[in-house]
Computed example of a mutant assay.
Amino acid sequence: MEWLINNLPAIILVLGFVAGYYNYLKDHDPNLASKIKVIGDLANYAVSLQATKAYSNSKKQEEATKAVMEQAKAIGIKVTEATAKGAVEQA
């Protein structure tokens, strides 16, 4: 919890940047914006599935990241582990 409090300003800044970038992309590159939205939706779903599991948060994050990568690949979106992990963290 202390880590979250110490890093809250940076997290808010990153989330603001991502939201602003997404809005920019909706106007200038709708295809990429839709891919980013899909990855975010997959991450939200994966995180909600992990919430019911009775193991550590790091294991939940690992499983959710893996699920995002597998689902993105299944629908034809290339996503790196770092991107999937970031989406899960944001979710």
Rank of each mutant, 00 (worst) to 15 (best):
K26Y: 06
L13N: 07
P9M: 02
V79R: 07
T83K: 12
Y55R: 12
A87H: 03
I77H: 06
T52M: 13
S56W: 03
A67T: 07
D27W: 14
N31Q: 14
H28Y: 11
T52R: 10
T65A: 01
A10E: 09
A54F: 05
F17D: 05
P9F: 04
V14M: 06
V47L: 12
I75R: 04
M69Y: 01
I36G: 00
E62Q: 07
A74I: 02
M1W: 08
L42Y: 01
T65F: 02
E2Y: 11
Q50K: 06
V18C: 04
A67G: 01
T65G: 00
V68L: 02
G76P: 04
A91L: 05
V38D: 08
G20L: 07
G86M: 13
A33L: 12
L25T: 01
K78N: 15
V68P: 00
D27K: 14
I36R: 06
Y22M: 06
L4I: 14
I36S: 08
Y45W: 10
A46H: 03
Q50Y: 01
K73A: 14
T80M: 09
L8T: 06
S56Q: 01
A74E: 10
K78F: 13
I75E: 11
A10S: 10
G20A: 11
S58L: 08
I11R: 10
K37G: 10
L42A: 06
T83P: 03
A82K: 13
Q90V: 13
N6Y: 14
N31F: 15
L32R: 11
L15G: 11
V79C: 11
A51P: 00
E63I: 05
N23F: 13
A54L: 11
N6A: 15
A91S: 13
Q71Y: 09
A33P: 00
K73Q: 08
L4T: 06
Y45C: 11
